[in-house]
């Protein structure tokens, strides 16, 4: 299976990079842009054919390394 993990700072944790990008977009003429969050996407293949088992495994990877759950939340897609 192929996994995609999206990691973002949790709501309530100040995303200063998001804030900077938002200000830049305002400067480019999109004053209506609000709530920009900058995150990261990590993708990889896992040696697992069952989507449910694959997702469970990828979630464990998130908890152990890919996200710091003190400050970040994550979403997992497997396909």
């Amino acid at each position: 299976m192929h996994a995609k993990v999206h990691v973002f700072l949790k709501p309530g944790v100040l995303d200063v990079a998001g804030k900077a990008v938002e200000n830049a977009l305002h400067g480019l003429g999109w004053p209506g842009v609000v709530g920009v969050r900058v995150g990261r996407t990590i993708e990889f293949d896992v040696d697992q054919d069952d989507p449910i088992a694959a997702e469970a495994e990828v979630r464990m990877m998130c908890e152990k390394l890919l996200a710091n759950t003190v400050i970040e939340s994550y979403q997992v897609e497997v396909s």
Binding site: L14, A17, V70
Partner: peptide, 17 residues
Amino acid sequence: LCEAGLLPGALLRNEHL
């Protein structure tokens, strides 16, 4: 130490980048 769970909390990017 924070990443290893030996201390609580985390260090974020500086407020003014």
